[in-house]
Write a protein that binds this DNA or RNA. Structure first.
Length: 300
DNA sequence: CCCCAGGGCCATA
DNA sequence: TATGGCCATGGG
């Protein structure tokens, strides 16, 4: 029995989204099964765990855990729409891809894949800091060790579900603690610093959203120690759903462009930016689809 | 043993 | 403004 039903959006594939959520990596902030994803979520500080699966009408949400016992249906529905970017009409993007000589296969191959978000700005920034410069397998390992040490969790049917640590908790962590979790001293410093900024209210998602344009938002993000151009663009894309972000300098992005035989010098940021000019309004989606292509045997 | 992973900071010139 | 060293670890 579904506690909530979400109608199937146009150009949406639950299967593609599920694949992207998993990608054979060990993400500790949700669990992907063959047919569903189980997601722990904090709502006004109250723990909720829901399972999302496909059904005849679209998607069904089943509440597995509800700490407060209150009715959070509207909040959970809104969260899922934001998380999986359900309100986006991808037809314009698919038209652009279809007429491109190297991307024409994408609307079919990756049909219905959405930009899967990270609505929590602290989680997004921490994930970027952790992922900087190291391979993704090790990055997920670092994230898991941090979440298991500093985050709360709920056990259901023998499975442990983790909530991302609160900034006020990580603000009290020491360099020594994080270095013991195999963080480099830079990563430890950046994470603790950002945790302090957010827990004291010196930085917030609301503040970022209130800025007039993307340039101002990038500048504000980059003013924070540990956040460079790559991280700033990643956060605007995944947290604010800005449609025109390029994770410039990204090694995954570069190798995907390379695999498609595009862009002569992938280290040339101006050339990469110029390449994206044709995708105005869909630059962020192109980044996602290029990342997706890295796992496609046809391309690599 | 080497180089590179979904970077960013800092010192130096 | 540009360049190089550094960081921690695992895989090729």
């Amino acid at each position: 029995m579904a506690d909530i039903t979400i109608p199937k959006p146009l150009n949406f594939s639950f299967k593609e989204c599920l694949w992207f959520l998993d990608r054979n990596y060990d993400d500790c902030l949700y669990k992907v099964t063959d047919t569903s994803v189980i997601k722990p979520l904090l709502i006004d500080g109250q723990k909720v765990i829901f399972e999302l699966r496909e059904n005849a009408e679209g998607m069904a949400v089943e509440l597995l855990y509800n700490e407060s016992g209150g009715n959070h249906a509207d909040t959970i529905t809104a969260y899922i729409h934001d998380w999986l970017d359900l309100e986006r009409d991808l037809s314009g993007f698919y038209q652009l891809l279809a007429q491109h000589n190297a991307f024409g296969y994408m609307p079919d191959e990756f049909a219905g894949l959405r930009l899967i978000g990270i609505p929590d700005v602290f989680e997004a920034i921490c994930w970027c800091i952790i992922g900087q410069q190291i391979n993704l397998t090790f990055a997920y390992k670092l994230k898991r060790s941090m979440v298991e040490k500093y985050g709360e969790s709920i056990e259901l049917d023998g499975e442990v579900h983790h909530f991302f640590p609160k900034p006020e908790v990580l603000a009290e962590a020491t360099m020594e603690d994080l270095k013991n979790l195999q963080f480099s001293r830079q990563k430890a410093d950046y994470v603790i610093h950002v945790a302090k900024l957010i827990s004291t209210g010196e930085f917030s998602k609301q503040e970022l959203q209130a800025l007039p344009d993307r340039e101002a938002q990038l500048k504000r993000l980059i003013s924070v120690r540990g956040i460079g151009e790559w991280t700033a663009n990643y956060v605007l894309m995944k947290t604010l759903k800005d449609m025109n972000c390029i994770t410039i300098g990204d090694t995954g992005l570069n190798s995907a462009l390379d695999a498609h035989g595009l862009v002569k010098n992938k280290k040339d940021k101006a050339e990469v930016r110029a390449f994206f000019d044709d995708f105005e309004g869909w630059k962020s989606y192109l980044v996602i689809y290029l990342w997706r292509s890295l796992a496609s045997p046809d391309v690599k």
